[in-house]
Computed example of a mutant assay.
Amino acid sequence: MHKAMRLRRFVRQAGMAAMLLGLSVGAGLPACAQSAAEVRMPSLEGQRFEATTMLGDRTLRLNGLGLRGVAWVKAFVAGLYVAAPSKDAGQLLAMPGPKRIRLKIMLSAPSHELTKSLTGRIEDHEPPEVLARLSERLTRLAGLIDSVGDLKPGDTLDLDFIPDKGVHLRVNDKAVGAAVAGDDLYRAVLKIFVGEHPVDRRMREGLLRGGY
């Protein structure tokens, strides 16, 4: 009788231990789940991007990812976030509401190289009347980018647009300077990435994926 009672007590204790072990394993699941989530994050050239992000009071979705590079030189991976993903460049350019262009830097370079690429492309392809309207604000935005100094692998640069506030520059999640007004300015910047005369056509194709 006593042996039977001890056996039942052992079984109960063993069962409790198994439950506790299960809980302790379960307590470790978030880390495993997080790793799995990281694996599932959209990525290109090893650069991971969140599928969604908050900007202002809106949730934006990742429209696509594109690599900016020449031959074997990889400068950055760009991600475009919009409220309603689309494969139509015209629709994206005309879309109201907040937007984000996120650049994940892959090589060391002075930020003024990015500035030259940005301003040069706009000056080459925007009509004179548009450039006249943008000139002063484009100079201010270029100055903000120049002020960043040296960019290095692992840096993240965001060009954000928030209606009624303007174009915001953020580097590694920190704001740089004040916003520069104008959805027309942001549209000119976005054209560099997805317009008819992009700085990199392969990058454009990736950014126009239409969502994840």
Rank of each mutant, 00 (worst) to 15 (best):
A142H: 05
H112G: 00
M16F: 15
L131I: 03
L190M: 10
R137C: 04
T59F: 02
E196W: 00
G56N: 06
G90E: 12
L80F: 06
D150Y: 10
I162N: 05
R9E: 13
I192L: 14
A94L: 12
A33Q: 13
P96E: 02
F10M: 08
P110W: 00
R6C: 00
F161R: 00
L157S: 01
K3R: 13
D155P: 02
D164T: 10
A51M: 08
D184I: 05
L107V: 07
L118T: 10
C32W: 15
S135K: 11
R48E: 11
V130R: 14
L44C: 07
T119Y: 06
Q34D: 14
S108W: 01
D164L: 11
K99V: 01
G46I: 06
A89H: 09
S43V: 04
L185F: 03
A31Y: 12
L103H: 04
L131P: 01
R133G: 07
R9T: 03
R137Q: 10
L92A: 04
A33Y: 14
N63Q: 01
D160F: 01
V189I: 14
A84W: 08
D150L: 03
V11A: 13
M203T: 02
P127T: 04
F76Q: 11
G177C: 02
S147R: 07
P153C: 02
A75E: 02
L80I: 03
R40M: 15
D183F: 04
D183W: 07
K99T: 01
R40W: 14
C32T: 15
L107G: 10
H168N: 14
M54T: 11
G64C: 04
L80P: 09
S35F: 13
Y212P: 10
I101S: 05
G15A: 15
A51V: 09
T156L: 06
A36K: 05
R140G: 00
E129R: 09
